[in-house]
Amino acid sequence: MQLSTKHLLGIKDLQASDIQTILDTATQFKEVLQRPIKKVPTLRDVTIVNLFYENSTRTRISFELAEKRLSADTINFTATGSSVSKGESLLDTVNNILSMKVDMVVMRHSASGAPHFLAKHIPAAIVNAGDGINEHPTQALLDAFSIREKFGSLEGKKCAIIGDIMHSRVALSNIYLLKKMGAEVMVAGPPTLIPVHIREAFDIRVEYNLRKALEWCDVANVLRIQLERQNQVLFSSLREYNLAYGINRKMLDSLPKEIVIMHPGPINRGVELDSDVADSKQSLILQQVENGVAVRMAVLYLLAAKQPIFNP
């Protein structure tokens, strides 16, 4: 019951047994969250900084709540309103925070590889909360937890990741995780939003027709169109995207079996998902958010135990 890694930088670095350990631990934390008092004193000697260089609602609140439920002390740092605007570098910023005796860093950054860079230079444990278009490991873990909760296991499950694969760190983390846990993976979306060699690189299915993807899968993990990362015209308009790749009630009802809809949020309603799909009982979206806290508690707990105890 030990992780093989000191940091959680990406699913890529994890072994299948690590993923299993995290998901099993999260099950116990989910039980803690059902108690009348949803807080355990486990990490009361740990200080965690949430370093967010990029906007976030769910992930930041979820991490903060997970830290508080574990009784850790937390500091929140957002790039706006800090000395980053005065030109302080990432490493300087973090080293200054660490000199105040912080044990763990949860970080989100718009540059891919930023947490990997930090991991080489600082002693604290780092949890990647999303780096550029690289990975978002805790999102993939909570997606896996939600699928496992619904179906009992990931093995052999058919999971389609639909939408903007190119700019999505959620997609990459999910592909790594699902492959490691023995699920079948498909990516689907417009050809312009799917990297060219992804089929060979990961040994997964690629489908450009939404209907065929939905007919194949048990779980459809629908991604957000990342408008903030589009700097060239990859599809003509949101309306056209919705017509070709938006999932609506009528389409779901015409499928041969009932599939499960997931979405990492925030949803562009009326673009990738219609409201009557997002809010239906086929959707696991709110369970995903609920499970996020338990999964992040598990990650923090498992990594904290690998940390030397500062100031003994």
Partner: peptide
């Protein structure tokens, strides 16, 4: 009741988690 999260030596090594099952007040 599983007491792992309440141990005073929780950070000196990982302990196997077990199920807590107290579905009542």
């Amino acid at each position: 009741l599983d007491i792992t999260f309440y141990r005073d030596d929780v950070r000196q090594g990982l302990h196997t988690l077990n199920q807590t099952d107290i579905p009542f007040s």
